[in-house]
Write a protein that binds this DNA or RNA. Structure first.
Lengths: 141, 141
DNA sequence: CGGGATCCGGCTGGATACTG
DNA sequence: CAGTATCCAGCCGGATCCCG
């Protein structure tokens, strides 16, 4: 029950809002929670941060160097957002200069798995997708 | 090798750009493909559409009713985007009134698995996340 | 070192009206 | 039924400067 549970366990309510939707219980597509998690992990940087922190605890500028392309501001905002949702723990060491470490919480680590599988899917299919995209654009001129 | 491959197979290049990044081969976090796939599936509606089409072929207004909250314009744009990337196949039956069916392609179905697992994760952890969010906001006033 | 404050352009997505 | 066209607000994210 741990390796592949495409749908939530019994007893877990599918959705707490939008109960007026004629949603078959076989799906959670209409559940706002799906949209909510995408707002968190689906922005430009969160997923990369989660993947990186899945490798181990990291300092701020360490993440900044590794992620490559992320601005200071966006790294701060992304980490704050993940911290707010309880996915990342922020540890401040009041030294001079200050030291701040970030690491995944238990929930954050549980997110790492589906997120990394989505990342793996992206890597595996990127050429085919790029090709399909080119074909589509070429057909439409 | 089919059930859980968190990382790409050997022989599959991790990344074709950003080769100057000191990326350990154990991770694909810095790969632009990860960002690319998030731009596709990470928008407001694509994931829900993919989940819904995973249940079977659907007509336009059928999807519109089921997804609940999506506008006509956004459903069109979302479906076009997925079609452009080769994830969705669009079949037009030139009748009066016209009939258009949408279904996942093979790649689209392969996406369904990681996407639905992410959706399941969202449903399973939404209360904990909402609680953490409230705590964070309360602590910050 | 690890941020916060400010400014700003561009894209996302909603509302509405119209069409074959 | 299945779109297209237009307008527009809001947020996302980059650049820059400052700070303890």
């Amino acid at each position: 029950m741990d390796t592949a549970t495409p749908f939530p366990q019994e007893g877990t309510p599918m959705c707490d809002r939008n109960t007026d939707v004629p949603t078959p219980l076989e799906s959670f597509g209409a559940c706002p929670a799906v949209t909510d998690v995408l707002s968190r992990v689906g922005d430009k940087w969160s997923m990369q941060v989660v993947i990186r922190l899945g490798e181990g605890s990291r300092r701020f500028n360490e993440l900044r160097r590794i992620i490559n392309g992320i601005s200071q501001r966006m790294l701060t905002r992304t980490l704050r957002g993940l911290e707010r949702d309880g996915l990342v723990r922020r540890t401040v060491t009041p030294s001079v200069p200050p030291r701040v470490d970030y690491e995944l919480t238990d929930i954050g680590r549980s997110l790492w798995k589906p997120v990394s599988e989505l990342g793996a899917w992206a890597v595996e299919h990127r050429q085919v997708i790029a090709q399909a995209r080119d074909d589509y654009d070429a057909a439409a001129q």
